[in-house]
């Protein structure tokens, strides 16, 4: 396989019981590429990126991340999860740990980094997301936007090569969306491979290399942002865009 490919999905199919959620999904993501995935709810977009770090299991097809194929082998899964960071819709910070401890937990226990070193790295990333002064606080004391930025920093502390974003701004109040998007834009500019499920079309226009539209469990349309927003080809894409841009 060419070494330039970060993620490869080949004919991926997935079922929830009898329900066919992912239908023959094919996707190649190159290193450093930024991809935005959008689509109506229930279209399978979250399921797809959750398959990439094996939070969900696919039943057919191949998923290859960083030249490692995802199988039932725990070793492969562990290896891939170390290289792939994920940011969730509801942040999922650990409420019983401080911000700093949240960031140090995985480096210390997974990468076996000494605490001092882990804390130094964590503070570096907390500075990048502009909340170093909150390090000693607990997640419950922060605003939603701050929590999501901590979650981004927490993922970055593992030094991942790929970042997955699962609707990172949809649980936030409008005034907090911008601070999170700014952080994500900065990250994109640093050359990180990113897959974002989001409805923030402004973000897609500024940073995405490609935009994917999913519906009914399949990839309907994939194009550069320019083409995607100005000349949507498929009628369902047109309908979706008209709905989402209407407000």
């Amino acid at each position: 396989m060419e070494n330039n490919v970060a993620i490869q999905l080949i004919g991926v199919n997935k079922w929830y019981g009898e329900f066919h959620v992912l239908r023959d999904v094919n996707l190649n993501v190159e290193r450093g590429e930024r991809i935005v995935i959008c689509g109506p709810s229930g279209s399978g977009k979250s399921t797809m990126i959750r398959c990439i770090n094996r939070l969900e299991e696919h039943q057919q097809g191949q998923i290859i991340v960083d030249n490692v194929e995802l199988t039932n082998d725990l070793k492969n899964i562990d290896q891939i999860r170390r290289e792939v960071g994920m940011v969730f819709q509801h942040f999922n910070l650990f409420p019983h740990l401080t911000v700093l401890e949240n960031c140090c937990l995985a480096p210390m226990w997974v990468r076996k980094v000494p605490r001092k070193e882990a804390e130094r790295v964590a503070m570096e990333y907390l500075e990048k997301v502009k909340i170093p002064h909150q390090a000693k606080k607990y997640p419950g004391q922060l605003s939603g936007g701050q929590q999501q930025r901590v979650a981004i920093a927490r993922s970055l502390c593992m030094n991942p090569r790929i970042m997955l974003f699962d609707e990172p701004t949809s649980a936030l109040d409008p005034e907090m969306i911008k601070e999170v998007l700014d952080t994500m834009i900065e990250l994109a500019e640093s050359g990180m491979t990113m897959l974002c499920v989001t409805h923030e079309m402004g973000f897609a226009k500024t940073v995405a290399d490609r935009v994917i539209f999913m519906d009914g469990g399949q990839v309907i349309e994939m194009n550069t942002p320019d083409e995607f927003f100005n000349h949507p080809q498929h009628e369902r894409t047109q309908l979706f865009l008209s709905q989402i841009l209407a407000h």
Partner: peptide, 11 residues
């Protein structure tokens, strides 16, 4: 979500 976050971090 807590378990998922921990798994996603590689724990």
């Amino acid at each position: 979500g807590q378990t998922e976050a921990a798994n996603a971090l590689g724990l």
